[in-house]
Design a protein around this nucleic acid. Structure first.
Length: 931
RNA sequence: GGGCGGUUAGCUCAGUUGGUUAGAGCGCCUGCCUUACAAGCAGGAAGUCGGGGGUUCGAGUCCCUCACUGCCCACCA
């Protein structure tokens, strides 16, 4: 039954089935239902997608890489745990639900906080986590029994504990500072959530009237320049450089703030650049970080002129109620009317936008919660830098990201963790209505911890989403509840082995996990009770950072450009395995992936190739069964091996398999998915199908007269190698290999899934390269004869006699070919094959050199003389160039003296070979009939 | 302004510590329905490794410089 495969591979026919099977059978659950907790743990945490997310190519790349490594490690005997979950994604999710409310004609404010939060939960139940279902469909080998959500009760406990501890340690403070404020989201956002865009704006120059000693306009003005004129409503001073000659006579004088009328001082500060603008700066401490610092230094008042929505507030007098950009227009117009607008200059500058909604961010004074980051950063730096022994607790691949990380960590600012949202972890702090002090507690308090008053209200702010996701590596394994009974998971899986992610969340998430992980896990003693060293406190031992998936033209995929490739669409078209293989084969570290469906088409063809190889094999297994030849399933599942007496092709394909396994394992060790994928591709298609299967057709003789033992041995090797190759390919193409692997075992495999079988490892075979070289010689001869046939215009289906003559004292041997005439004859379409000594060969034949031999293909069709002349002339030129280059090198005394012996020897050998080829080509040209 | 990458065949990319005549896939050209596979088979063409200079017996690979290009960080009104 399983041997009856359709002629062409149809991924859609099998993928859903296996995807569901893997989940239902709980194959990837840890501890494993059947075997328990066996093997050295390999832990990997899925970067939790937003609950609102839909799968895009970046996810698919990320998941493909993780799945390949996890499957590979699992098959290699590790206790592999890949842990999935989703992030509540504060702003993103809140926005989603708010949009729904807008459509319904209501707002969250009308709904009220409690009802709104319930509404978001409801949304989650309906639409949340769609991305994980997509992931299931893609066959990700994760432990679904451990799926988490960052708002789960147990993770919320961890968040609260972390906050309280940091607060108790004096590392969390609350205060009024300039923060990035999004007037649309109506919340503070962190520096990282601001994206800057170059903007062609203006520099407005405004004249501020200098007052005389009586508080009257003196007729003199100071001109300031600004890109945000509306903030002048909150100006409290104008600053100039103390050494600036232009303003020295004005030191100590006052100014009148236009439109507002407030008297403001001229202050002196060396921070002011004399070169920029007019050298005089308006000072708005409530709306600019630099001005804020300036204001602190000079004890200036802070006047916030905008409300949470970016409209001018009561401080703005006549402008109150106007949107900030409307106010800007009015103010500029009014200034102009009053003759106080000195000029408008074009000015290109960077404008910050909210990462989430792209609204222009307003730097604004606001009371927020912050993490004092320096102590955490210190540990996070130590975790990445080499220690005294040169060891790094966390290793980055590609290594250059280590620099990026350290550079950021060394210049880090305190982290604003409060958000004025309703969806998220509410800050566990209570404000006292009596003494106005703050109570921070693990359990909801009934009274103020300072004065005992029951008049307390909980802080309304929630935490930055990244605060909770930054805790994931510890919280998913049970922290803070690490007791003797509960710590099995923590001990087994923390630190996690590897983090695979994109550079876009290097600072958002990776850096925060390192800071928080080192900080909190560091307090958890080792299983034996000893203090936990830094190397065991880190959230992961390795970080692999992959690049961006771009479109085929290297453009960033974006909705506005309309060049987004939906992975699910591509998967439907070409099959999951083909898309996975595309991503893997293009994933060389440090380079963006230009996703090109042409590649995927190629890998779909590859899948089809394997499918058809299986059909060929099964066809022969069935034929064999008819004459009583069987392959014992017990001989499958390991690394195939054959004796030295086995036929060349058997020894060779086994050698190639070992060599490929070595390459693939090595490549995966180094995150070279591309090298690994290419090695398997080359093996399967280039070696197994193109050569081995073609040759083995000679051996699969099921006739009466055949030697059944030989046929059986050939068939066994064929199936063994194929089965092992499926396992080798399995992490890359899990669906196809699962299907065919079950078929190999006729539906009765030794374990439930190929994913639970063992990964091929190369054995120590000394003869590997020797056999491969011998086969290479034979292949070279085959290719040479085929090319010769082609030149002579011999139809593919016509066999011709061929003579092969070995060069006297030449640099190779035709021994392999002489030992295997049947192979040569089949692959090169030879009717009669004769090996002759070149010394007594028939001069009248058209001999041409093929590797270390001369070959004469006997065919009655006359030679195309002009074509032949052209080819030989070209060859001669090439050989002449080669010989000349080699001679030049060999004539160089420095080279002979300093180059290693094997290089010199190699060059000499090559020179003599090329010289021979040159002479032969010249002779052949000479021998051509003159026309 | 600071930092980090990239530039190799028509396209997308490999190229390990410098070492013999630089590779792959796709595309292109030519010929084949050779019973596993036309999503295939066979053969072939195609690159002065961004420019210039240097180190070296030897440079795609190391150094300097220029050009182009991408990204990250900072955010002087």
């Amino acid at each position: 039954m399983p041997h009856d495969l359709p002629k062409a591979y149809d991924p859609t026919a099998i993928e859903d089935h296996w995807a569901a099977y893997w989940v239902e059978e709980k194959l990837f659950v840890q501890p494993t239902p059947e075997t328990g907790a066996v093997g050295e743990p390999f832990t990997i945490l899925l970067p939790p997608p937003n609950v609102t997310g839909r799968l895009h190519m970046g996810h698919m790349l990320n998941q493909t890489e993780m799945d390949i490594l996890t499957r590979w490690q699992r098959m290699s005997g590790r206790r592999a745990l890949w842990l999935p979950g989703t992030d509540h994604a504060g702003i993103a999710t809140q926005m989603m639900v708010e949009r729904q409310l807008t459509a319904e004609g209501t707002t969250r404010q009308q709904l009220g906080r409690e009802a709104f939060v319930e509404r978001v939960w409801e949304w989650n139940r309906h639409y949340g986590g769609a991305i994980l279902d997509q992931m299931k469909r893609l066959g990700a080998s994760v432990d679904w029994s451990r799926e988490y959500f960052t708002m789960d009760e147990r993770l919320s406990v961890a968040v609260r504990e972390a906050f309280v501890r940091l607060y108790e340690q004096g590392l969390i403070y609350r205060g009024a500072y300039i923060v990035n404020w999004c007037p649309r989201c109506q919340t503070a956002i962190s520096d990282l959530e601001v994206v800057y865009d170059e903007h062609k704006g203006h520099l407005w120059e405004i004249r501020y009237s200098v007052l005389d000693n009586f508080g009257q306009d003196s007729g003199e003005y100071i001109t300031v320049a600004t890109t945000r004129p509306e903030t002048m409503l909150g100006d409290v001073a104008v600053a100039v450089h103390p050494e600036d000659e232009r303003y020295k006579h004005l030191h100590g004088r006052k100014l009148r703030l236009p439109l507002v009328g407030r008297e403001i001082p001229i202050i002196l500060d060396e921070w002011v650049s004399r070169e920029f603008g007019t050298g005089a700066v308006k000072v708005t401490p409530a709306h600019d970080p630099n001005d804020f610092a300036l204001g602190e230094r000079h004890h200036l008042p802070q006047i916030n002129v905008m409300d949470d929505t970016g409209h001018i507030n009561a401080e703005g007098g006549a402008y109150a109620g106007l949107d900030r950009f409307v106010a800007r227009k009015h103010i500029v117009a009014d200034l102009e009317k009053q003759g106080l607008l000195a000029g408008i200059k074009d000015h290109v500058h960077n404008v910050g936008h909210c990462d989430r909604c792209k609204t222009v961010v307003e730097p604004r004074l606001s009371t927020q919660w912050f993490v004092k980051i320096a102590p955490l950063a210190e540990k996070a730096i130590a975790a990445v830098k080499p220690d005294a022994d040169g060891e790094k607790a966390i290793r980055f691949t590609p290594e250059m990201y280590e620099k990026t990380y350290l550079n950021w960590m060394e210049n880090i600012h305190d982290w604003c963790i409060s958000r004025q949202l309703w969806w998220g972890h509410r800050i566990p702090a209570w404000h006292c209505g009596v003494c106005h002090k703050i109570t921070v507690a693990r359990e909801d308090p009934a009274a103020c911890a300072h004065c005992g008053s029951a008049e307390i209200t909980q802080e309304t702010d929630v935490l930055d989403t990244w605060f909770s996701s930054g805790l994931l590596p510890v919280s998913v394994f049970g922290w803070p509840n690490i007791t003797t009974e509960t710590r099995a998971d923590f001990d087994a899986f923390y630190p996690t082995s590897l983090l695979v992610t994109g550079f876009d969340i290097l600072f958002f998430w990776v850096a925060r996990m390192i800071m928080l992980g080192c900080w909190f896990a560091g307090d958890v003693p080792m299983p034996d009770g000893s203090p936990r060293p830094l190397a065991e406190s880190v959230p992961f031992r390795e970080v692999y950072i992959h690049a961006l998936v771009r479109d085929a033209n290297r453009e960033k995929m974006s909705k506005t450009k309309g060049n987004v490739i939906d992975p699910i669409e591509i998967v439907k078209q070409y099959g999951t395995d083909a898309v996975r293989f595309t991503l893997a084969s293009m994933a060389s570290p440090g380079t963006d992936i230009a996703f090109n469906v042409a590649r995927t088409e190629g890998y779909r063809a590859f899948a089809n190739k394997i499918w058809n190889a299986a059909r060929f094999i099964f066809m022969n297994v069935d034929r064999a069964a008819e004459v009583g030849i069987k392959v014992d399933p017990a001989t499958l599942g390991g690394m195939p091996d054959v004796g030295d007496d086995a036929p060349l092709e058997a020894r060779w394909i086994v050698a190639e398999l070992h060599a490929t396994a070595a390459k693939v394992n090595q490549a995966l060790e180094n995150y070279r998915y591309d090298d690994a994928a290419n090695a398997i591709y080359q093996f399967f298609w280039g070696s197994f199908c193109d050569w081995y299967i073609e040759i083995i057709k000679l051996r699969l003789d099921f006739s009466e007269s055949a030697d059944k033992a030989k046929t059986g041995a050939a068939l066994t090797t064929l199936v063994q190698v194929f089965e092992a190759a499926l396992r080798l390919l399995s992490p890359f193409m899990p669906f196809l290999t699962e299907e065919l692997w079950h078929a190999v075992y006729d539906g009765n495999p030794p374990v439930k899934s190929i994913a639970l079988s063992s990964y091929p490892r190369a054995g120590a075979k000394a003869t590997v390269s020797q056999i491969i070289d011998r086969m290479l010689g034979l292949q070279f001869l085959v290719t040479g004869i085929r090319a010769r046939r082609k030149e002579l215009g011999i139809p593919e289906n016509v066999a011709t006699p061929v003579k092969v003559g070995m060069w006297a004292g030449a640099f190779g041997s035709s021994q392999t070919a002489e030992d295997n005439p049947d192979i040569l004859m089949k692959l090169a379409q030879i009717s009669v094959l004769e090996f002759v000594s070149l010394a007594d060969c028939d001069e009248s034949l058209a001999w041409s050199p093929v590797g270390p031999t001369d070959v004469a293909v006997l065919y009655e069709k006359p030679i195309d003389v002009p074509a032949e002349r052209e080819r030989l002339t070209k060859d001669i030129a090439k050989y002449e160039k080669g010989v000349a280059a080699a001679e030049r090198q060999l004539g160089n005394e420095g080279f002979l003296a300093k180059a290693p012996a094997h290089v010199v020897e190699g060059l000499k050998k090559q020179e003599s070979e090329t010289r021979t080829l040159l002479e032969k080509a010249r002779a052949a040209l000479e021998a051509l009939p003159q026309q």
